Simulated assay, not measured.
Amino acid sequence: MTVSGIDRLHSQLSRFEDMFPGYRMEIVEGNIMMSPVKPHHAETIRQVWNMLAAQVGADWGFTSDVAFPFDGDNEFCPDLAVIPAPEVEKNEGAYSPDLIELVVEVVSQGSIRRDYEVKPRWYASRGIANYLVLDPLKGHVVTMWNPGSDGYRGRDTIPYGPDLTVDSPLGKLTLATGRLPVDPKARAGS
């Protein structure tokens, strides 16, 4: 896709975001993707942000739903990305994915394939050390590490409940998963 093509998509994305409040928009594989956001989605982000903020130093900051252009066909807006604090302070609308030390996505019904299949390849290809997929639909977290050019070589799926410790370049980070929200439909199906 050409630069003018990505600019056109980005312009359309901005328009759609205004037209469809309550939806999260990204450019994935050259297409504008919309996912409805539910309260469990936002609550998961809030809890994880608070837990991580209490553990990382002042040198690190957080972004949520801010664009990270990977190439002409992929501009992801991670639910949560940890990047250097001076970069966050610039208050930009887009940042280089090379700044991300840890990335978190929260699964919604419309993002399953993107969060589990598409994004791991892209995040790993840029050397992002840790990728966490929190899934309120299934009540588990998938932690990925050891990035390579074709994806993450390490991957564990842990049901919500016990604390999760992530060995990251930011240090050992602990997430209390026992109180993370789970979709009531997921509980009924288990």
Rank of each mutant, 00 (worst) to 15 (best):
V28L: 11
V28K: 13
G30C: 10
I32Q: 07
I32N: 08
M33E: 01
M34K: 04
P36E: 12
V37L: 10
V37D: 00
K38E: 05
H41L: 05
H41C: 03
A42L: 04
E43I: 14
E43G: 13
E43F: 13
T44D: 04
I45R: 07
R46I: 05
R46Y: 04
Q47T: 02
W49N: 08
W49R: 12
N50M: 08
M51L: 09
A54H: 03
A54M: 01
Q55Y: 02
V56S: 09
G57H: 07
A58Y: 00
D59I: 10
W60E: 02
V66C: 04
A67Y: 00
F68G: 13
P69S: 10
F70G: 12
G72N: 08
D73P: 01
D73W: 06
F76S: 13
C77K: 13
D79K: 03
L80K: 08
V82S: 07
P86C: 14
V88S: 14
E89A: 15
E89S: 15
N91I: 01
G93K: 12
Y95W: 02
L99H: 02
L99G: 10
I100C: 09
L102C: 06
L102G: 07
L102A: 13
V104D: 04
V106P: 03
V106I: 05
Q109F: 15
Q109W: 03
I112H: 06
I112P: 05
R113C: 13
D115V: 07
E117Y: 10
V118G: 07
Y123G: 03
Y123D: 05
A124Q: 00
L132F: 04
